[in-house]
Simulated assay, not measured.
Amino acid sequence: MSFFTLDEYVEKTRQVDRGQGLFELETPRMLELNLGGPGLASQAWIKMGTMVGYTGQVKFTREGIMEQGVGNLLKKAVSGEGARLTRAEGVGRVYLADNAKKVTVLKLNGEALFVNGNDVLAFESNIRNEIRMMKKLTGVLAGGLFNVRLEGDGLLAITSHYDPVTLLVEPGRPVYTDPNATVAWSASLQPELKTDVSLKTFFGRGSGDSIQMRFDGSGFVLIQPFEEVYFQAG
């Protein structure tokens, strides 16, 4: 059995400034926001409920009722806490984590990306966001009720259970995914929900999940090795 003295443990686990900028991975499962430092932005959007600690003078403001317009307001009312945002603003360090999920930081260069609403952790304030709803009722049953379209220039942090895998989508070669395991996809793709319900499914002997997302065209889909249930009907 190994053990540490208190001094050894503090030294082993203490926060270290890696000089990575506004978004810094403190650990694979914890994101550090360096707000208001030299040349760094003083604010960012974070997923509500993900702040686990902070230092300095930082103010947290829940997203205003009309912040993103009436359309987004109504969608947020349906989509639940997973799509709710908080503005972190000031000078200091903010530490974010979401159920010990793995954090990935992406850099958007005028591009757009769809992310499952529950997997958005943080993004720079100049990145535009819009909630998109699944059009069919099966989206509610599958748990893939809503997603967020993020577009612009800046940093974006997303989460996944364990290490995600990217599947390439090519013309004539559609990709099918479980909605509860789908993390993100390129904005060039418009997924459709596909149902495959049979008596075997009801008896627990189906050959696969009864509700799937189908991606056609050119792009990519990010999936995780875990089926996370975001919403349950009834």
Rank of each mutant, 00 (worst) to 15 (best):
D98A: 15
E228I: 04
H161L: 07
Y162C: 09
I223H: 06
T61D: 10
T201P: 05
L168V: 15
G69L: 11
V78M: 11
V91P: 09
V115E: 11
Q20V: 03
Y230T: 09
G49M: 15
R18G: 06
A77E: 15
M51T: 11
F203Y: 12
F215P: 14
T201S: 08
G71Y: 11
D196M: 01
G90N: 03
N126Q: 14
A97M: 12
D98P: 00
S2M: 13
Q212M: 13
P179S: 01
G19K: 08
L193C: 10
L35I: 05
G39H: 04
N34M: 07
L25T: 04
L145R: 10
L40G: 10
L73M: 15
R132K: 14
G144S: 09
T104L: 13
V91Y: 07
P28K: 00
Q15S: 10
N129S: 11
S210T: 12
M51G: 01
V103S: 02
E67T: 11
N147Y: 14
F4G: 01
L108T: 05
G53Y: 12
F114K: 04
P164D: 04
L74H: 06
D153G: 08
D178G: 01
A77K: 15
I223G: 01
N72L: 09
R87V: 13
K136Y: 00
L168M: 12
K47F: 02
E228L: 07
D216N: 15
M213Q: 10
L189R: 02
D216R: 14
R132E: 05
R14V: 07
H161N: 08
G49W: 15
G144T: 03
L113H: 03
I65E: 08
G217L: 02
F114Q: 13
K102R: 15
V52T: 13
K200L: 07
F146W: 09
M48K: 15
L222Y: 11
L145K: 11
E32Q: 12
V10M: 00
G204Q: 10
